[in-house]
């Protein structure tokens, strides 16, 4: 069994290698010196990160007592977080409504199939294209970002959710149906609580995803920290871009820890003991070293 698995992995790796070779048309010379180029670019343009992004902007004049609250890093990250928060919440509500209609164990095929096709259509446009569309329709700014992220969240989360619903044990649904609970009641009182661990995990993942992609959609003018990144890129200020990327990384790690903490209240792991902030951080460190 072990040899078969290794054999299958080897064949897959070989196929991937041959495909890549075909894609680059056998011209591997481009990779020569790539690593040293990266080293030069990093040491000369990005390092050290320019932490002036955490100082108050020169304009508009800062009216806060603490300068940090007027900095590009703080304002951009807060706007990205706000866009991500609103679009994740709106998208989650939309996705849960649609995914309950798309799940085969909750709805007949005649309803589930059209909803699945709709979700696929929404999902087939990447968040960047949604952002460009909304920037064209309603102009630059965070509202375009919110709408773009919301639509993408609905498409993406919708699929994850209906797959989770379809994988749940059938007996609670059967008990609810036999008792005569209505479909909305079954969704609210059986399906959602039973899948709360997965739903919370997906919700936190989507929030993290939206924070990371907030940087991308910001580049097309849909607001957030991405707007500042795109500006610094235009002016070749890579050290400031690097500082902003570090800020995004720290925020993503914090969201991951938050997710670990929140999910522990609904999964079996949390039955043993409730985690403190300290042991949450220790657990995250342990996972990384394993």
């Amino acid at each position: 069994m072990k040899y078969r698995l290794f054999g299958a992995l080897f064949i897959l790796f070989f196929l991937a290698w041959r495909t890549l070779d075909g894609l680059v048309e056998g011209d591997w010379g481009r990779l020569e010196g790539g690593l040293s180029n990266l080293g030069v670019f990093f040491s000369e343009s990005m390092w050290p990160p320019n932490w002036s992004v955490l100082e108050a902007r020169s304009y508009p004049v800062c009216e806060q007592d603490i300068e940090f609250f007027c900095s590009v890093g703080y304002l951009g990250m807060m706007e990205t977080l706000k866009i991500a928060f609103v679009s994740t919440v709106l998208g989650f509500v939309g996705a849960i409504t649609l995914s309950s209609l798309a799940a085969r164990n909750l709805m007949p095929l005649s309803i589930a199939l059209p909803v699945r096709i709709f979700l696929s259509a929404v999902r087939s446009l990447p968040s960047l294209i949604w952002a460009i569309l909304f920037v064209i329709v309603i102009g630059f700014g965070p509202l375009s970002g919110v709408l773009a992220m919301t639509f993408y969240t609905i498409g993406y989360l919708g699929k994850l959710q209906y797959e989770v619903f379809e994988g749940m044990a059938n007996d609670p649904l059967e008990a609810g149906r036999a008792m005569g609970l209505s479909r909305p009641s079954i969704l609210l009182n059986i399906v959602i609580p039973e899948n709360s661990n997965h739903l919370l995990s997906q919700l936190m993942f989507m929030f993290e995803y939206n924070v990371r992609h907030g940087t991308v959609i910001g580049i097309v003018g849909a607001g957030g920290i991405g707007y500042y990144i795109s500006t610094y890129l235009k002016f070749l200020q890579y050290d400031k871009v690097f500082a902003l990327l570090i800020i995004i990384f720290v925020v993503v790690v914090v969201i991951d820890l938050l997710s670990l903490m929140i999910r522990s209240f609904v999964n079996e792991e949390g039955d043993v003991r409730k985690p403190t902030w300290l042991n949450t951080i220790i657990a995250a460190k342990k996972r990384r070293t394993e």
Binding site: A169, E174, A175, I190
Partner: peptide
Amino acid sequence: LGYIPQRLGLVRH
């Protein structure tokens, strides 16, 4: 109609 399935049909979480 009240129904208790073999696997009880409880919402475990």
